[in-house]
Design a protein around this nucleic acid. Structure first.
Lengths: 246, 246
DNA sequence: ACGTATTTGTTCGTATGTATC
DNA sequence: GGATACATACGAACAAATACG
């Protein structure tokens, strides 16, 4: 199964047992003998294998988790951290394109589509007044079947009144906007922060409530420089890295 | 003290009590009668004032927290959310400058300075080999006395051997690099993710372990395009917004 | 280092009104 | 009408984090 032997531990040699265990597991991960996403043996099994108490194993795993190499899930087990997806943020960032560039299979599905009055925080950057009608499209983005992001896209209804129908026909925001008379749009600014997920975020991302999400608020403008979209994406932080290259 | 009256609630009028409480508190915040950062009355006191059960108050506060208007801290109280600092990420981003532009008083202090062999994750982007010597400067950045970031800055020791002494003399990375023969440097790329803070991060940022930090990994290059610095900044997510404008 | 008081967090249980099938 | 699900509201008790002397 694995090549870590009980006798690889040295007792009473100045290096704590749990640090030796930590290094042994770390080496297995570095050498890809434990693949990304793979489940480690149970704490009990590791304790047996190394001939130590389970507490000693737990200390090693806690340190590995703190350093971000593994992820411990109560009741399920301990897993090697998956490789995060790089999400490149450029002037023209399209979800499916950036995922495909990393040899992963993108998928996007609509979870909400409606018209509604805009809150102040949405209206202002769009150049509207609070209460003006905006169209909200909410989409969940996946890479290789793993949910990566849930994004709320807001558009001024006056500019693109038929956007919902267009989206249903095209299954793509870029193409739906084109059909509504907005052939191109680019990113004006991005604001990034992080928080713990709401119940809805956690459900859509299949993420424990205790694991943070990145929140990326994006303002997109059309060719004439007019605001055309605000998108607020919540990204599972442990599965994504936002990459900015000027 | 405050002007919210018990009789401001209407029972059995189609609007849930907790929503009425939510709106009352929201109005106080909007009108600045509750200032940013200020502590709200205790749940017990609010329950008394509105003449409802504590659960009902808690539901209102939970909704306000979900929407980002307040921040609840176990054992301490509920606080109006402070205005987050905008941290602009540009080609030439200097901490003190971006903070000062928002009429806040920046402060930076050194918490660690040492030479050490580079780990693989540091060495590779710097164009070094694992084990080559790097200089590590660790700084805590504050705005108006509130800790915002703890950042680990790695430099190739071969390029700037006297950096630690230079930093002690100059108290600024930009000026210390200039003194070591690097008159200018710019940002090549930034990678952003988020996680829960380590014990050390939490202590330096005076942040509960349960609140996420943004992790911004920055690669800086000199005028000739050679890598000169990797900085890994952990930012208290609830106090900062990273702003990218191309 | 320790106990105490304060404050939020969690989990029981109970009851009521409303909407839906 | 009956059955069911759901959101709302209240009460009591205890757990956990924090502040303070």
């Amino acid at each position: 199964m694995t090549s870590v032997e009980p006798n690889s531990l040295v007792r009473g040699a100045g290096v704590a047992l749990w640090r030796q265990i930590e290094q042994a597991v770390e080496a297995e991960i570095a050498e890809r003998r434990l693949a990304a996403g793979e489940r480690l043996p149970t704490e009990h099994a590791l304790a047996d294998r190394f001939g130590v108490n389970r507490h000693t194993v737990r200390q090693a795993l806690a340190s590995l988790e703190e350093r971000g190499l593994v992820r411990v899930e109560q009741g399920r087990g301990t897993f090697v951290h998956d490789d995060p997806v790089d999400y490149a943020v450029r002037k023209r960032t399209r979800f499916s394109e950036t995922i495909r560039r990393q040899n992963r299979e993108p998928n996007s599905r609509l979870v909400r589509a409606e018209s509604r009055p805009a809150e102040a925080a949405i209206a202002r950057p769009l150049g509207l007044r609070k209460g003006d009608t905006v169209i909200l499209l909410e989409t969940v983005g996946e890479a290789d079947g793993r949910p990566i992001s849930i994004a709320s896209h807001y558009f001024p209804a006056a500019r693109v009144p038929d956007l919902i129908a267009a989206y249903r026909a095209e299954q793509s925001i870029t193409r739906a906007l084109a059909r509504c008379g907005v052939p191109d749009y680019t990113r004006k600014s991005t604001r990034v922060t992080a928080r713990l997920p709401t119940a809805e975020d956690a459900r859509a991302l299949r993420l424990p409530r205790s694991r943070p999400v990145l929140v990326a608020e994006n303002l997109n403008i059309d060719q004439e420089g007019r605001p055309i979209e605000i998108s607020i994406a919540r990204l599972a932080a442990e599965r994504v890295q936002l990459v900015f290259e000027p």
